[in-house]
Structures are given as structure tokens and as C-alpha cells.
């Protein structure tokens, strides 16, 4: 079984704050991490390898510093890592990102492709299904459990709002995973040592035989027009007085607004 896990290095958004004066993000000291959902995809890849045999490759598109994320994945036990890096990838939206990853996966070949359900910086959840479309293979989103893996098919549970669907698919298939699927393992010392020494395969646009009109900004149908801090409502009324007065005032407001 050839397994590819797509990962993304993201800023730990839990620690990102907005500077209210300059309206910019305060990034000082915000660490870069592997997108948390992708950690579950890595764990799923390792789990499938342990059950069905094969090897696991992690792949990411990003700047040279994204190598850190790949090495972290190796320390957890994945076999190899590929970094897609090229100036031509700059400004990729989800469409161009998915195209680029798909071209690389096509080049590498895979039976199972795993992605986290979404990245915590963009939260779009689009790249996984788009990769599947570019590769013309089926995909199943929101995998919360893998029921069985056989030579020619996989049966999984897809998390829905009101329960779950049991779905089977042939190979190759792309799966996006949710946190309920597993608990990502911690690295091992041997893994960390291997990660330190590992050679990361670097690939650029030419290596993956990509159409340059589909890459980066040029290949991106969407553009960011502007970014801004979330607005805040201004019409608040602070209720003052003793505890008794505050509560009475609130109850009166609620009655006025017909909330009771």
C-alpha cells in the first residue's frame, strides 16, 4: 500500500492576536506547527501501514522552512518526505494548491492519499476534495473511523451532522480525516534521530511537470481583496446599579424585546 499524507505548516492560530491599533496580526513568538488535523492524517497513514503494510510519504507545498514540519512527521515514523517549493507556487489559492499537490502525487503514485479535514489558518477544507478531482479518483471526507482495509477496497465512516455514513471505496482513494479518528502518536527517539539525518526530496514546478498557467497567482481563480479585523458591535448598553437594579433592568429589557 503506497500512502501519501498531505500536510501544511501553519501558525498556531490559538496564539495569534490582532493589534487593535495597526489592525495587523501579532505574530511575535507564534510558533509554526503541523496543522493539527494533519497530525491525525499522519497517524492514520502510519496505522494503515502497520495494518496493511506499505510505506508512508508526507508531502507539503511551502517555503524551504516547511522542511521542519516534514522532519517532525519523519520523527513520528513516516518513511519519506517531499517538499514542493518553487517561486512559481507563490500566491496559490486552494485551486492552485490542489493542482500542484495533485501533480506531485500523480508523479509519485499512491493508493491512499490522506489529508486533515482542513487547515486551521484557512479553514477552507477544499484542498483535499480538489486534489481528488484533479487526480480523477474518489474521495471521502470527514473520516472518523476506518472499519476495514482489504486489498481492493476500504470501508470507512464519514462523520455527518446527524450521525455517520458507512462508505466503501475502491483504490486509489483520498480521505480527509477528523480528530475523532485517532490520537496522533508522539515522536520516538529513533524517529527523531532519523528525522535529523533524513534527506528531504525537493521538487519544483518542472519536476512535477506542472502547467505554469495553473500555478501560483496565475493559476488561482480567487484573489484576496483585503483583510481586516472583525468588526465589533457598538450599540451596547451597560446596565448599572446594584445587583438588584441591574437584574431588574435586564428583565425589563427582555420583556420589551419579547424574549420572555
Amino acid at each position: 500500500m503506497k500512502i501519501i499524507v498531505c500536510i501544511k505548516q501553519v501558525p498556531d492560530t490559538a496564539e495569534v492576536r490582532i493589534n487593535p491599533e495597526t489592525n495587523t496580526l501579532i505574530r511575535d513568538g507564534v510558533p509554526s506547527i503541523i496543522n493539527p488535523y494533519d497530525m491525525h492524517a499522519i497517524e492514520a497513514g502510519l496505522h494503515i501501514k502497520e495494518k496493511a503494510g506499505g510505506n508512508v510519504t508526507v508531502i507539503t507545498m511551502g517555503p524551504p522552512q516547511a522542511e521542519t514540519a516534514l522532519r517532525e512527521a519523519i520523527s513520528m515514523g513516516v518513511d519519506s518526505a517531499v517538499l514542493l517549493t518553487d517561486r512559481a507556487f507563490a500566491g496559490s489559492d486552494t485551486w492552485a494548491t490542489a493542482y500542484t499537490l495533485a501533480k506531485a502525487i500523480e508523479y509519485l503514485g499512491a493508493d491512499i492519499i490522506l489529508c486533515g479535514k482542513q487547515a486551521i489558518d484557512g479553514d477552507t477544507a477544499q484542498v483535499g476534495p480538489e486534489i481528488a478531482e484533479f487526480l480523477d479518483i474518489p474521495h471521502i471526507s470527514y473520516i472518523r473511523k476506518i472499519d476495514e482495509i482489504k486489498d481492493n477496497k476500504i470501508v470507512v465512516q464519514r462523520l455527518m451532522d446527524d450521525g455517520y455514513d458507512v462508505i466503501e471505496s475502491s483504490f486509489p482513494v483520498l480521505l480527509t480525516v477528523v480528530k475523532e479518528l485517532n490520537v496522533p502518536r508522539l515522536p520516538s527517539i529513533k524517529g527523531k534521530m532519523a528525522a535529523k539525518k533524513a534527506v528531504i526530496q525537493k521538487m519544483n514546478a518542472a519536476d512535477i511537470k506542472a502547467d505554469e498557467n495553473c500555478l501560483g497567482l496565475k493559476g488561482s481563480p480567487t484573489q484576496v481583496r483585503n483583510i481586516f479585523a472583525p468588526e465589533v458591535k457598538k450599540d451596547r448598553i451597560m446596565l448599572e446599579g446594584t445587583t438588584e437594579e441591574k437584574v431588574t433592568a435586564l428583565v425589563n429589557e427582555l420583556m420589551r424585546l419579547k424574549c420572555l
Partner: peptide
């Protein structure tokens, strides 16, 4: 189990 997986028992 976690300690085992991390190789610490083999230190």
C-alpha cells in the same frame, strides 16, 4: 505504551 513507542525503555 507511550514510553515504549517513544523508545525510552531502550535508552
Amino acid at each position: 505504551k507511550v514510553l515504549a513507542q517513544s523508545d525510552l525503555f531502550g535508552l
